[in-house]
Nucleic acid binder design. Sequence first.
DNA 1: CAGTGAGCGAGCTTCCGCTTGACTT
Length: 773
Amino acid sequence: MKNLVIVESPAKAKKIEEFLGPDFKVMSSYGHVRDLKKKDFSIDIEDGYKPIYEVSADKKEIVRKLKAAVKQADKVWLASDEDREGEAIAWHLCEVLGLNPEKTHRIVFHEITKPALQHAIEHPRHIDLDRVNAQQARRVLDRIVGFELSPVLWRKIKPALSAGRVQSVAVRLVCEREKEIRDFKPQPFFRITGNFLTAQGEIKGELDRRLDSEESAREFLGVCSSAQFRIGEVEVKPTRRSPAPPFSTSTLQQEASRKLGFSVNTTMSVAQKLYEEGFITYMRTDSLNLSKMALADISKAVTAQWGEEYLHVRNYHTKSKGAQEAHEAIRPTYISNRTIEGTDREKKLYELIWRRTVASQMADAQPEKTTVDIDFANPKRQERFRAQGEVVKFEGFLKIYRTDDDDDEGLLPPVTKGEEAEAKEISATERFTQAPARYNEGSLVKKLEELGIGRPATYATTISTIQAKDYVKRGEKEGKPRQFKVFTLKGGKIKEADRTENTGSDKGRLVPTDVGMIVNDFLTEYFPDILDYSFTARVEEKFDEIAEGKLPWQQEISDFYDSFHPDIEKISGMRMEQKVGERVLGTDPKSGRQVSVKIGRFGPVVQIGTASEEEKPLFASLPKGESMDDITLEEALKLFALPRTLGELDGEKVTAAAGRFGPYVKVGSLFVSIPKDESPLTITFERAAELIAAKRDAEAHKLIHEFEEMPGLQVLNGRYGPYMAYKPEGAKKAVNYRLPKTQDPTKLTFEEARKLMEAQDAAPAKPRRKRNS
DNA sequence: CAGTGAGCGAGCTTCCGCTTGACTT
């Protein structure tokens, strides 16, 4: 073998091999092959912050194969991405494969075309060690922050918590938004709209000021009831609207979330599939660039389909901080593929990418905006109604791609200044000022990108991590009804109506948990520098200096460590008056002991009494849906009413309680779940007896059949219908088997049962659906 | 999917970024 080329992605390797021909073998490293040791701190502070690396467990096999290939090759080319991480991957490969970084051929290309590859091969360089050092600094800094901060949280708040440069800021954004919403006081005001009849048709306008009270709204409608109206100024203004740039990772995630309802994780796994199938370019990118070849293809397609006037070739440049632009924007590999074969989700995401890519090279849309004033005939009244209309004179890119703000406003009837306008109906509708919106996954990614925090490869993981760590969850509340008033003036009379709307829904939006809030308050108080929104941006500047060879990386790390580590020591050893986040609710009237809420070993708990008292404190964990933040003393005390004794059944005590799988009633060793709309606090003995009887009945009818031929094998009735269970003698757990829907469970023969078991034992386990996606 | 119904004291937990499959987290 003459040449060995190593790239990061196997899909890329396959493609490149086709272009390079038989003299080249192309292999993939599957990303980083070496990292700081997984366990332990693995940075030798004493020895100049020396990182202690190891080949990652899941890369051992790949490294073995690469080593074998290197032995057989005359020349090795390292072709990982041109960004900081890519340079480091190349360097780690040198270290692991025994190559000399100062001599090995390092090549880069930003698009996979024959000329680009040719050019790269003709212009090799060596590893850029300054850039590698910038990556080492980044890596070491993140390890120091993460592995020093997290244990402080274990000590002060709860075990197994985590903190880091990226995730902690993501949580902070969600928490601060929640506080803004909590502190927001909606202000009512009235919006006035009117429908007017003109010679050529009806026109709807809104008053150019808002009224701030019911009285003023009523009074204004009173004025209107005896007023005359005329058409005032009519303005027709041509406008232009430009298409959005092609997709990067973050904008793809946002748009797929808005338009297709995909979670960030879903988008990435569907995009990964499209990439592997060769339908789209690489999906983890911060670049907005399109290759010359792509631009030529798009131009051809636009001209052919809609004509020259729809084409406008544009270059987009990313504005996001810290972008490294090692790839292209996300685009279809072949514009001529209008649609693709695949699952529903794959087709939809591809279609979205196709439209966005092509639209980005199309002409501006030219909407013509019309504004019509409807004035009081009485010149003393200064306010006016205003109607807005829009006609799209030239569609341009709107032919194929619309965003939320591209909605048509509709056409207005032709009117002339001075013409009379008759008020058909004027209404005053009560509205409320809006609190800022909670983030969803997509908008949080957008915000992180704006702050330069996180990378395309990690946005989805960050969003998952903060949910998996239970700092943030997706809301489930539908919101609450809110009353608002509508006054309508029609035919000289003012009518009043009360209407209701829903408000405050957090469904699908990111809401901080109690733990998330408390951890965030703790970190922002004691480590404000790390939690600062511009911390990443500041260290990125240092990394740039390192990459330019102007600053030794150890210098930067030592500057940081010398100020950070003493804080860790100080705060970790600090004695606290009470547990972080603890809140005293009041006094238990029965015992006179203090009642408080805090984060316990297993999450939020209510506690009666304190550890310093002789009598041990009582604990009750907070049920799902209750928050430490707003729980009252009364609600908290109720939790100690469980387990409740309801009475006796056949000499055995019947109790009601809440377990980890929800509320239940219990008699002897039998547990029966309490249905969703009933509560263990209020359930009666009679109702419990009913539930128990139903459960016993079900248990009695559980066994459908047993087989003499095979003791331990049973056909059972479960809550999802009949199934088979086999528990060999001495085994702890039974293995379950499905029955075909058509099978009558009472008539199953042993032979049939045996076949079903064999078939299902042989079949691989179905992949389980992931939780947080 | 097919049932479950704590812990309270042993050892472990933890970062970010680059890549895909393997997988019971």
